[in-house]
Amino acid sequence: MEEQQIKWDLCATKKDKPKTDELVFGRFFTDHMFTMDYTVEQGWHDAQITPYQPLSIDPSAMVFHYGQSVFEGMKAYVAVDDSVQLFRPEKNLQRLNRSNSRLCIPPIDETFILRAIMELVDLEKDWIPRADGTSLYIRPFIISTEPYLGVAPSSHYKLIVILSPVGAYYEEGINPVKIAVESQYVRAVTGGTGEAKTGGNYASSLKAQEVGADKGFSQVLWLDGVERKYIEEVGSMNVFFKINGEVVTPALNGSILEGVTRNSTLQLLKHWNIPVVERRISMEELRQAHKDGLLEEAFGTGTAAVISPIGQLTWNGEDMIINNNKTGEISRKLYDTMTGIQYGKINDPFDWVVKVKEQTKISQ
């Protein structure tokens, strides 16, 4: 089958770019976006790069009523040699298709979409900030667009990719954050959609996040939705704990998102011969480890923040201060190594980096 081509419709005028000190996460957007449509009759078709603009969509579009949507998050970086590069984007698109399957959305051609993303990033490369800790955030997402109020999978979809120059996700940066352990609300259960990156998972987390923010916490740590005792993940991150010399992270169980940064962290720890295990871990075990002086370090991992040290966990009114509320040795080494690879400052022994300039053109 002949490969699709991308149609181009470029901006007549371009927006002013934000200054580096104005950058926050997800508030500014570039001049262009990528779109593609799906119908049962045509499959995925009409790939376009167009000016960033509002959508025209029917009020009865199924996404508004039944939440059939998925998304991903990845970043583009300007490397020290001035090349533009992505970090393991194929893993994000593989996960997007896993989310598609769970939400009954037709699969995308991962190779084509990756190359389309690279064309869009190449077009918008002047938007990529160059200061330390900054990048161009890439948000691919798919929504159901069929105008129909029946409860069933949609037959029409739209895939969109937008780009946003960003600074640090947390104001604290690589400094430790305060996390509240959530005991009242539930985010997901095994068999649900917790392992898919779908909007509903995040909507269900907002109330607990709002309550936590009012009390000065950066995020909440979710426990399992059945017994309310086993650790799962932080709202925007997977989570790791160093206990008595061994790094522990909750095993994937069907309700935990399989993070790309989580996977990269596991590979790095094994590469460094640091003991690491994926297993079930309870809050009571963690509390006891803290009480015994064995909880040496804790951190979250995710595309947005990369590595975020955890300096305090609060559970049932008890504050657990970790590593004297300082960034731990492993957290710092992981952050420096991961970002070093992302910005081309150090060698990439895993072939994680994809250079945008090495793309094959698919435009007309």
Rank of each mutant, 00 (worst) to 15 (best):
K7Y: 04
E22Y: 13
V24I: 11
F34Y: 02
Y38E: 03
H45K: 12
A47L: 14
P51D: 07
Y52T: 02
I57H: 01
I57F: 05
P59W: 09
Q68Y: 13
E72F: 06
K75H: 00
D81K: 09
D81G: 11
F87G: 06
F87C: 03
F87R: 11
E90Y: 09
K91V: 04
N92W: 06
Q94M: 03
N100F: 05
N100V: 02
S101D: 11
R102G: 05
C104E: 09
P107Q: 09
I113E: 06
E119C: 00
L120G: 00
D122R: 07
E124Q: 04
D126K: 11
R130I: 15
A131C: 11
S135N: 02
I138M: 01
P140N: 02
F141K: 07
I142S: 07
G150D: 15
V151I: 15
V151Q: 06
A152F: 09
I162T: 09
Y169N: 13
E172A: 11
K178W: 03
K178C: 02
A180D: 07
E182S: 07
T193I: 14
G194R: 12
A196W: 10
N201F: 01
A203V: 09
L206I: 06
A208W: 08
K229S: 15
V234D: 08
G235E: 07
F240D: 05
G245R: 05
G245N: 12
P250H: 01
N253T: 00
S255A: 11
T261V: 08
L268N: 05
L269F: 07
K270P: 06
W272T: 09
R280S: 15
I281W: 06
M283W: 01
E284W: 03
E285Q: 10
H290K: 08
L294K: 15
L294N: 13
A304M: 01
E318H: 03
E318G: 03
M320W: 00
I322F: 01
N325M: 09
K326A: 12
K326M: 15
T327L: 14
I330K: 10
I330N: 04
S331V: 11
Y335I: 10
M338G: 05
Y343A: 04
Y343H: 14
Y343Q: 07
D348W: 14
P349L: 13
Q359R: 15
I362S: 03
